[in-house]
Design a protein around this nucleic acid. Sequence first.
RNA 1: GUGGGCGUAGCUCAAUUGGUAGAGCCCCGGAUUGUGGAUCCGGUUGUUGUGGGUUCAAGUCCCAUCGCUCACCCCA
Length: 430
Amino acid sequence: MEGQFKAVRGMKDILPEDSGRWRWMEETVHSVLSAYGYREIRLPIVEHTGLYARSLGSDSDIVEKEMYTFLDRNGDSLSLRPEGTAGCVRAGLENGLLYNQIQRLWYAGPMFRHERPQKGRYRQFHQIGAEAFGMAGPDIDAEIIALTARLWRALGLGALRLEVNSLGDAPARAVYREALRNYFGRYESSLDEDSRRRLDRNPLRILDSKEPGMQPLIADAPRLVEYLDPGSAEHFRVLRDLLDEAGIAYVINPTLVRGLDYYNRTVFEWITDRLGAQGTLCAGGRYDGLVECFGGAPTPAVGFAMGLERIVALLEAGGDGGGEGACDVFVIAVGEEAVRAALPLGESLRDALPGLRLSTHCGGGGFKAQFRRADKSGARIAVILGADEVRQGVAGMKLMYETSKQESVGQGDLAGHIARVLGRPLKEQA
RNA sequence: GUGGGCGUAGCUCAAUUGGUAGAGCCCCGGAUUGUGGAUCCGGUUGUUGUGGGUUCAAGUCCCAUCGCUCACCCCA
């Protein structure tokens, strides 16, 4: 291995044995999104660094130490996107999509964070996200949660836990932050190192500390719900009613605090306990202040993003297969004459049968070796060309799995026979 | 950034108190000179992650380093 290039740490290849499962998963997600009226928006992977500093909070971990940031040749500071919402809002604003309008948008693609890799956490990872703009009420929050619930059903993922919470509006959160600072400040000596550090910067984060010694203290801490402004409390109450009405089970997690600064009111996460420490498959919430923060008119917004590596890992854990053979028809050609005939025959079959997956054996070898390849290809049909067939203008056609029987077919009739076996229409002759 | 575990063939893994680096899978060929899957026979595959040290002798012990992995942190 010495001297060979290797993939960059934390960046994974998705190999053919997995790409089918990825594609199926992505298509399933797309179809559910369009069932709710979401339209795709394609966004750049690189944005100005300031965009993330402004939206995520300049002292958030992501901005502070996890971004792939570099100077463009003209001296601008650019960053590989660490998440999708900021870019989506920027694009919506820049292209006039958000002004006094309702928009339901989705995007997909790679995100980059320079973290230490572990199970379910990579430096290049993939997300599909959706954002709904211009709707202030809890009904869209409930709809978007219902959408994600449908997603898990469509993907066949079992038992996920939905956690919800309300962060209130910004002034209420500021009051609450002070209350927490007071409370934990009284016990400063018994705080662990991390929590002491957060006390000053972001006391809300102390709440989701996993430190065992901290749990009793956290349990007795002031609750965010008690500090919610009346508007947010009502929003949250109606959201819970709507979820109950829709039959969507959830648990209220008062310590659920999204990591990014721009969230307010509703936050939610879908969690599994089958993926180790990184069990959040999907997370989202409301961010009513972000559009304004980027210079737009005040625009309510709610959205979510899901981690595709984690979804795929869960599909694999469920033993959900995704593998299928590479082709339907495998052409065997032995001898110089047969090799010469194989290419045009393959081309004419592809012309006659749109969508046909056909591989031709290349590289020589006897019948035995080529049949072995045909078997491994997973093709249902082998087409055999040897010296005899070429001389007679026919081809052998063998059903590899159904009957193992081989028959001789005129080359002009081959497409019709294949169409019948595969249950596919022949292309109309012009 | 911090800590634990692990690095032997393409893959999964053996190798006794330090004593000639092995097996299965995969791949290739043959048994069957024009026919796959099952069986049998044969064959290819290594700087034991890298660099140093101890020793008559190191995959094995020591040091360093790189990589992978899991967890903390953080988050999708």
